[in-house]
Design a protein around this nucleic acid. Structure first.
Length: 447
RNA sequence: CGGGGCGUAGCGCAGCCUGGUAGCGCAUCUGCUUUGGGAGCAGAGGGUCGCAGGUUCGAAUCCUGCCGCCCCGACCA
């Protein structure tokens, strides 16, 4: 992408409404634009990141055997009256009515709808297990939206719903999602610590929240430093192997980790040696629940089992805040100069900077490298604008692409381009003709 | 919902107390000079002063009501 033809409205100054770093940087880099409290437009740069994250989530859900679908944002109130949540959900639910005065609502979550779909289509245990998910916009009329996309009213969420015949099967479905979540966050360069959680209005009794550590997090968390020593990168296993899956869950739940609501200081002190007790702030980026027949009963989701009897389905629901993750990743990965994108979620992998636009030789060298990088399957933002070097450097650091290729008359004389790694600031001079290969060796082509 | 703050050009702000023809910096446009870490000079464009009502000869400024936004607290992907 040529910057001169792109839409990247960066702000030179900090917008005054943004206090926390991710919100500030998202506004400054032109990723988002606020339309109302907790409601944002996603501008091209932000949209690219959102899609990247969404794709990683999708890949890991698919891998764990979940099946993607899409339910609408608008739901009939009638479903929610059946589950009893129409009244329970309170003012957080945005209620609307159509021209015929039918009561509708903008979905804050989809347990009712998916359970109803299953109830109408699944009659036999032979059709199980099922885990269906979608990635769809939600609306919750939060008491106080804040922190940009981290607590928006409208937000993009991946929500999956599992349906099984027995509690044991349901727990396996839960465990699979648990492992899939570890894999998902790891694939984005994050460590999200699973913590025992309250179940809230979703209900049920088995639940974990996944939190990434950041000073600006909204939750107070307590955990065992042993989490820092875990291997977060390899969870290669057969999802159908119940024991293997349960073992990973066991491994990651045996160490103490709790949010403030569930924190038990006595247990913490008893189980964790003092030097390993860590308390800090965390951002909740995922939440999984197992709630048995809480919804299948009122919505009549039952199947005939092998015993010839009717059984209510055993269910769980599994959410990842996709739009929140954009902010959360920035909170976890930035410096004074701006965002430092982990490669897997970066909007572009490479920023190519022409330091002297208008200069024929420099332009020719840039065009050549640009074409080679694109041919190598890399995603490149080519700063071909006529601005001065300083502005280009500052802007490229601000938007935080993992690699910068800097081409100017100085290097051209030596036949080299300078390649800078945003995260570490290391620079290396690379012969012009080797730039594409050099980068390709250090990057995975994006799919 | 309780507490605090803000609303004036695309962005950041001054002006308001003490009413008198709306200003600064950055950005934008034109020209020239520049060009390896947010350039210089010269010129130019851009405003329902959040909205409505009131007081006044006259309101960004005073009064009343409303709306929006941000921050702190109780709730949540």
């Amino acid at each position: 992408m040529r910057l001169s033809r792109y839409f990247l409205p960066v702000l030179r100054e900090d917008p005054k409404e943004a206090e926390i770093v991710s919100h500030r940087l998202m506004l400054r880099t032109g990723m988002i634009r606020q339309e109302a409290a907790g409601i944002y437009s996603w501008l091209p740069l932000g949209f690219r990141v959102l899609k990247r994250i969404e794709n990683i989530v999708r890949r890991e859900q698919d891998r764990a055997g979940a099946i993607e679908m899409l339910m609408p944002t608008i739901q009939p109130a009638e479903l929610w009256k059946r589950s009893g949540r129409y009244d329970d959900y309170g003012k957080e639910m945005l209620r609307i009515s159509d021209r015929k005065e039918h009561e509708l609502l903008y979905g804050p979550t989809n347990e009712e709808m998916i359970t109803d779909i299953i109830a109408r289509s699944v009659q036999s245990y032979k059709q199980l297990p099922l885990n269906l998910y979608h990635i769809q916009w939600k609306f919750r009329d939060e008491i106080r939206p804040r922190f940009g996309v981290m607590r928006g009213r409208e937000f993009l969420m991946k929500d999956a719903y599992s349906f099984d015949l027995t509690r044991e099967d349901g727990e396996h479905a839960y465990n699979k999602m648990f492992v899939a979540y570890l894999r998902t966050y790891a694939a984005m360069g994050l460590k999200a610590i699973p913590m025992r959680a309250e179940t809230g209005p979703i209900g049920g009794n088995l639940s974990h929240e996944f939190l990434i550590l950041a000073d600006t997090g909204e939750s107070q968390v307590y955990f065992d430093a042993a989490f820092h020593e875990k291997d977060w990168t390899t969870f290669e296993l057969d999802y159908d192997d119940r024991e293997a899956v349960a073992k990973v869950v066991e491994e990651f739940t045996s160490m103490y980790a709790a949010t403030e609501e569930m924190h038990d200081p006595e247990r913490f002190e008893k189980e964790v040696p003092e030097e390993r007790r860590i308390s800090g702030r965390g951002i909740e980026v995922g939440h999984i629940f197992f709630f048995g027949d809480k919804y299948s009963r009122p919505l009549g989701a039952k199947v005939l089992g092998p015993d010839g009897e009717e059984h209510y389905l055993q269910s769980g629901s599994y959410g990842i805040g996709v739009s929140r993750l954009v902010g959360a990743i920035i909170e976890a990965s930035h410096d004074d100069a701006g965002i430092v994108w982990p490669e897997p979620v970066a909007p572009f992998q490479v920023g190519l900077i022409n330091l002297r636009s208008g200069d024929e030789a420099t332009e020719a060298a840039c065009e050549k490298i640009y074409a080679e990088l694109e041919n190598a399957g890399l995603e490149v933002l080519y700063d071909d604008t006529s601005e001065r070097a300083g502005e280009k450097f500052t802007r490229m650091d601000l938007i935080g692409l993992p690699w910068q290729v800097i081409v100017g008359p100085r290097g051209l004389k030596e036949g080299v381009a300078e390649i800078k790694r945003r995260a570490s600031g290391e620079r290396e001079n690379v012969p012009l003709e080797n730039v594409a290969d050099w980068l390709r060796e250090r990057l995975n082509p994006t799919g």
